[in-house]
Design a protein around this nucleic acid. Structure first.
Lengths: 314, 314
DNA sequence: ACAAACAATAGTTAAAACTTATGGAAGCTT
DNA sequence: AAGCTTCCATAAGTTTTAACTATTGTTTGT
């Protein structure tokens, strides 16, 4: 049994297809067939049920895949241990970022980071929180940036910053004349929300719940971008809430419509999250330091009230 | 990097000698040299410091060995998972037994076990408790039989039986006329002990401590076998304590010198112990069942007071 | 029934893992 | 200090195996 064989098994298990798995592992399809057969012979079990379409794992195959993941992960850590000992910061690093953080945070630290650690090959992906957690668990990502706390068993969180919610209230809105705004002023039915799947949406819903109203499921306009929400808001469809960093990019005219909350301002906690296994921890450390340094200049809020990003289950 | 290479590294790390490690891994010494060099090249670190005599691990080498142990153990478990799925009970099984249990317990279950599970290749070793725990941790043993509780982080215990202490009091001794005996009657300075390293010795010392006296370190006769202790006892050197199963082998004349304790009789807890990793758990289960079945007929004590086998640290 | 998709098989090649034989350094011995 | 032993590295040759290309065999869908 070799580590390579186990990697092949994992690839086939993941793609449920020998040909695709072969591409991903950079070998030809017959190589996969043979090596996996050899492993099956040696263990004297069938790992895959080849009669099913698409190909499926047998009962014991599932257990073997689980264990193979352990082994391959542990094996990968050896290079990591060596890198760490040498203080080497490099290699591939896969980072997932939630959509509502991506466009504002990434430009702030990306150049800085790649300059400082040129040997790290960053692969960045935009993912919502659920997918992010899943990919971290599966080892497809090395780290992620998301709103926290997530209360996940196998994931560690290191807080990068607290980003206050800012209300965008167009001129004709009932709250337009308030200098500042209180959580109690909010009415969920009056607020434009991002479409389902964004944790910022869930954060806003939680915020309003904590105020007074209970969300009932009547018609609401939802969109995937804050730009759209702002436009809709100006059309008189209601107010909306933006994360603080997004407000920095607005034009002067739009900034006039911003209303900050009274202290303690509601805020989301944005963290660097990564598996407890701490694979590539030295790169994670480096990234944390860079982002913290960059953000410290941009966000100076002290007195905030953290709003949970988790959807409220019923 | 291959699992084989990691096994080679572990072998050399263990034996601190390429030649011996080569024998143990059933390859020639140059194979080891080359494969380990290859791994070192690939990782671009030195795992071994070859200038030291005997050969030593480098700092990073220690970390690599630690991780390699994980990987190899996890890899071994795959075969185990398959065996378990198939309900196959077989393969090599290394069992360590403490000296004071070995001669009485082993004959009781060995034949029974090998008959029932002919495909298990039992390798039994006599070891004192400390060595046993260490070898379990290092993966050199699959399970052990020892006096418990041991309070070890990585070791599970399953109680096989409670074995009462029985006093052996020769005719001329001050306690010879007592029908039964109480813990309070014991005087540590008057009791013949096994030599240092036996946990039964520590058990007896703990027992006497719990009675009244504190052990002071003046001259005592100590021996490695109960037979010697009995002989010495009959020579008038004092009394001694025996584990119950040992008393079954005595002649009629010697049995007359046995004095059982009042209830609750002091007893040692004898358990099957094994690493938390539960490698080969199906064989462990089988062995537990066999031994429990055999012992149930021989030991029927209910009301016992468990004496710790751990040496009392000062 | 035919094409497409996909895995298995056959045959071949290059790499690797292992062997035996040998060399060289370090530590003991007398 | 010369000689012996121990022990690891190196060299050269052999065997094994992991990979490739090309092809065949099955199943699925049209």
């Amino acid at each position: 049994m070799t580590i390579t064989q186990l990697k092949y098994v994992l690839a086939v298990a993941e793609h449920q297809n020998f040909t695709k798995a072969a591409e991903k592992t950079f070998v030809t399809q017959p190589t996969l067939s043979m090596q996996i057969q050899k492993l099956e012979d040696q263990l004297d079990v069938l790992i895959f049920d080849r009669t099913k379409k698409p190909i499926a794992l047998t009962e014991i195959g599932k257990k073997i895949v689980q264990q193979a993941k352990n082994i391959v992960n542990e094996a990968d850590r050896i290079q990591d241990i060596v890198d760490q000992q040498k203080g080497f910061i490099g290699g591939e690093f896969k980072l997932g970022i939630i959509p509502t953080v991506m466009p504002t945070l990434l430009p702030m630290f990306l150049r800085n980071f790649t300059n400082k650690f040129p040997k790290v090959l960053l692969k960045i992906e935009e993912l919502n929180t659920d997918d992010l957690i899943q990919k971290l668990d599966e080892g497809h990502l090395d780290a992620g940036i998301a709103a926290t706390p997530l209360l996940q068993e196998n994931i560690k969180e290191r807080v990068l910053y607290y980003e206050p919610f800012v209300a965008y209230v167009p001129g004709q809105h009932r709250l337009a004349n308030n200098q500042t705004i209180a959580i109690g002023d909010l009415d969920i039915d009056d607020i434009l929300l991002l479409e389902d799947g964004h944790c910022f949406r869930d954060g806003v819903i939680n915020l309003c719940k904590s105020a007074k109203t209970s969300l009932d499921d009547r018609f609401q306009i939802e969109s995937g971008s804050f730009e759209t929400l702002i436009k809709l808001s100006e059309e008189g469809m209601g107010m909306t809430l933006l994360p603080y960093l997004h407000t920095l990019d607005l034009g002067e005219r739009q900034k006039a419509n911003l209303h900050h909350f009274n202290d303690p301002a509601p805020a989301r906690e944005v963290s660097l999250i990564y598996p407890k296994s701490e694979l590539k921890i030295q790169i994670i450390d480096a990234m944390f330091d860079v982002i913290s340094g960059v953000v410290r200049g941009a966000i100076a809020y002290q007195d905030v009230q953290i709003i949970s990003p988790l959807p409220n289950k019923k």
